[in-house]
């Protein structure tokens, strides 16, 4: 790798960084989908009846057992393509790779987030729920107002890990054509025949994003900390 190569790699940096909104969009979208699904899944897993618990387990088993890559192919080239071929659904055109990627990453993340929140809920003393019920709260109110506020705080360290997992998984969205950082890097690398500097550039960008994300999570953790509350730091 000589100066020339490095120079041209740096010249393509703005183009590669143009993929940043897509990468961040994938991560935040998937985190949100995973959270919105993961919390009720965890509540169902802990407090649900037998049927609910079995269904949640089935969901977790499915989405933790199939690689992201295979899911991307299945959802995008398989299911989505088939859906958009149906009359009236052609608006689900193959352009929707970005949304398909968010869905795949989010559904999988929901399975992992479910496990995280389940662990956090289970680590609370059972007396918390009892005390809330003893005051006359409904089970739903007790879970919303007493259990989840504590469990979600406890889950933050494990949950912040989910960010860095999604950051890395988001790099797989290039296989269905989402123009995020990885796919822009590949495009430049194959056009210029310089995979060495470009793969280093991509590595550095992702590494920086991991680092920034973890710092941000730590700030959040400090913000929502309950005074004097030093229960087990991780789950």
């Amino acid at each position: 790798m000589d100066i020339q190569e490095l120079h041209s790699a740096l010249e393509s940096l703005p183009y590669i960084l143009g993929g940043l909104p897509a990468t961040l969009g994938l991560i935040l979208g998937a985190l949100a989908v995973g959270f919105v699904l993961g919390v009720p899944l965890a509540v169902g897993r802990v407090y649900g009846g037998r049927t609910t618990r079995t269904l949640v387990k089935l969901y977790v088993w499915l989405f933790r057992g199939v690689p992201i890559l295979v899911q991307m192919y299945l959802f995008y080239f398989g299911i989505l393509a088939w859906l958009s071929s149906l009359p009236g659904l052609s608006f689900l055109h193959l352009d929707s790779a970005f949304l398909a990627a968010i869905l795949v990453l989010g559904l999988t993340s929901a399975a992992y987030q479910c496990q995280i929140f389940k662990g956090a809920i289970a680590s609370l003393p059972s007396g918390q729920l009892k005390a809330a019920l003893a005051l006359g709260m409904s089970p739903t109110t007790a879970i919303w107002r007493i259990i989840l506020p504590q469990a979600l705080r406890l889950a933050i360290p494990a949950w912040s890990n989910e960010y860095s997992i999604l950051l890395k998984d988001s790099a797989l969205a290039f296989v269905i054509g989402v123009m995020e950082i990885m796919s822009r890097t590949r495009a430049v690398a194959s056009a210029t025949h310089q995979p060495l500097p470009l793969s280093l550039v991509a590595g550095i960008i992702f590494f920086a994003l991991t680092w920034i994300g973890l710092k941000a999570m730590r700030v959040v953790e400090d913000r929502v900390r309950i005074k004097g509350y030093t229960q087990q730091g991780s789950i």
Binding site: M1, A171, F206, T210
Partner: peptide
């Protein structure tokens, strides 16, 4: 742990020959 596995594979397969 801080970089995607796909980037690492890319490095080992495509970029390493250029070192």
């Amino acid at each position: 742990r801080g970089t995607p596995l796909v980037v690492q594979l890319y490095f080992w397969y495509f970029a390493l020959p250029y070192v």
